[in-house]
Design a protein around this nucleic acid. Structure first.
Lengths: 119, 119
DNA sequence: ATGTTGGTTGATCAATTGCTCAACTGTTCT
DNA sequence: AGAACAGTTGAGCAATTGATCAACCAACAT
């Protein structure tokens, strides 16, 4: 059976007041959902490589396939996700589509991540 | 059949030199793998709520179940992942286990994320 | 000793993810 | 018009994920 939780835990470590205080500081649930969708874009090595490359220079899909050694399809699918997350923007140029980063937050998030793993 | 890629794309947008230049700036593949593992911890609403709560105050598992309205098992499973990613640390206190953030990078990464979604 | 509470763990299962394949659109070149 | 190239898309499938359930361990109270 599903365990039933009491209104407040009685483990004695934290008072109920502290739990209430933390609860009061919690952003609305929608924020966490939005945030998790954002970080999900950073949670795959392929997408990270794409973002890193675009942070160096704007590139077309074909360049990215060459750079990462993957198919156009795979790259294009990932770019679609990045587009929907507003992390990259694109511009048609003749036959090609040129992608670049949508804003500077990507770079900031990258930096914080590297700080954490290089310690 | 699987498409075969040329050594350099001939789409004409970027010169091969630029692709080479970007390639030279790419960190080793292992870095992307490590980074993606880190961001994966931020890619789930439940884990984000746990991290946010611990950023407010150290809490035991039981407090977290009360706060998030989830089972001990679900919380404990997620905490295990966060532990393995070195994002949280814990301390036994009698019957309870008290969790807290392992370092300040979590807060930084949170802030950058919020900056992006609140624009 | 027995029961209760706080927490962990492994198995299971549905849902999601990421790549491949094949088919397609659109642009350029001959 | 037809071929070649740049890119997108949807279906399919193996791999991963996240919650549940049940069993378990450890600390404490009676």
């Amino acid at each position: 059976m599903q365990e039933k939780r009491p209104l407040l835990c009685d483990c004695g470590v934290m008072s109920g007041d502290i739990v209430d205080e933390v609860r009061a500081q919690m952003p609305p649930g929608g924020d966490f959902h939005q945030l998790s969708s954002l970080y999900k874009m950073f949670s795959d090595p392929t997408r990270l490589q794409i973002l890193w490359a675009l942070n160096c220079h704007e590139l077309c899909v074909c360049d990215l396939t060459t750079l990462l050694g993957m198919t156009k399809s795979a790259i294009s699918h990932q770019l679609k996700g990045l587009r929907l997350a507003n992390l990259v923007k694109y511009e048609k140029r003749g036959k090609s589509v040129c992608y670049s980063l949508a804003d500077s937050h990507v770079k900031d998030i990258f930096e914080k991540g590297f700080e954490h793993i290089h310690e």
